[in-house]
Amino acid sequence: MNADAKKSLVLNGSAIVFVALAGAFLLDLWGRPVATVPIVPVAPDFTNTATVRLSAAELVRTGGDASGLDCYVCHEKGKTPVIHFGTNNLVILPKEHEDLVMRHGRNDRNDNCYNCHDADNLDMLKTRDGHKSKITESSRLCGSCHGPTYRDWEVGIHGRTSGFWDRQRGAMVRQDCTSCHDPHSPAFPAMKPGPRPNQLHPEKDVAENGKETH
């Protein structure tokens, strides 16, 4: 092999290597970073600032259908409905009120409609000491038994607040007791939790007793 042929071999060879390298770089044969786990967008429910239920006061304020609050559409004025109790001393709900869940108070000690409703005027609520209030102004009635909670609610410690912390710039919006608590079954309802933090290596996490460690 003479010098000329050798030179031509080297030059051709390097040209081929360079072209191959260029192709390899462009096609990225060394691979990209491992694809991350696709993350499902969070449902809008979890960023919604609405209260868990609609209170009677809010229903009236927003101009909703308040016909359900008018007791005398069905009941007869001046005639006190009689409450029937079962053998276990629990109220037997008439079928018109079957949608109610009666679970106010532990051991069912508050299982009597007239503990809160005014027997003489069903459109009103009545505390044990005789103070009457509208159904849309129930918080004071709740406070007649739940004193410490009512005190906290009055100063803004119990229950939801929204709007402005700086009162000079805007109002702090408060919610009624019944915006969060069903008066007939006041324990705060259990909720579906939002999605947990996304795990970068799900299969590894499962291997470690189903629990991520970092």
Binding site: T47, N48, T49, T51, V52, G156, I157, H158, G159, R160, T161, S162, G163, F164, W165, D166, Q168, R169, G170, Q175, C180, F188, M191
Partner: peptide
């Protein structure tokens, strides 16, 4: 939000009112 007098977003969304914020 807070330097314009409003409550933070986590407080606004909290369904139970567990979060309290202020001066």
């Amino acid at each position: 939000r807070t330097r314009e007098g409003k409550y933070p977003a986590c407080l606004e969304v909290c369904p139970t009112g567990a979060r309290k914020f202020g001066n």
